[in-house]
C-alpha cells in the first residue's frame, strides 16, 4: 500500500512542479516568476522526502533541510533585489 501511496504522491507533486514551471515560463512579470521559484523549492523538498521514504534511507533529510534554508534565503535575496536594485547595501 505504501508503495502505491508514494507513487501517487510522486505523480501529484510532479504535476504541481509542471504547473509551477508553466507559471515560471509565462510570467507575466518578474514577481510572478519569483513566486513560482518559491513554490518550486517547497515542492522539491517534498519530492526529496518522498525519495527518502521510497529508498528507506534517512540520509536525504540533510539535503531537504539545506534546500529549505537556501530557498528562503534566495527568495528574500530576489525580493530585496527587486525592492532596492541591490542585495547588500
Amino acid at each position: 500500500m505504501l508503495t502505491y501511496a508514494i507513487l501517487i504522491a510522486c505523480a501529484l507533486i510532479c504535476c504541481a512542479l509542471a504547473l509551477n514551471a508553466w507559471r515560471l515560463i509565462i510570467g507575466p512579470t518578474t514577481p510572478d516568476r519569483i513566486i513560482a521559484v518559491d513554490t518550486m523549492y517547497i515542492n522539491s523538498i517534498a519530492l526529496i522526502i518522498l525519495l527518502g521514504i521510497h529508498q528507506g534511507s534517512a540520509i536525504y533529510y540533510e539535503s531537504a533541510l539545506l534546500i529549505a534554508l537556501l530557498g528562503f534565503v534566495s527568495t528574500s535575496a530576489f525580493c530585496k533585489y527587486l525592492l532596492r536594485g541591490d542585495i547588500i547595501e
Partner: peptide, 12 residues
C-alpha cells in the same frame, strides 16, 4: 502522503 501532495497540487 496522498493528502499532503493533493494540497500541494491545489496550491500549484
Amino acid at each position: 502522503l496522498v493528502f499532503g501532495s493533493i494540497i500541494m497540487l491545489i496550491g500549484s
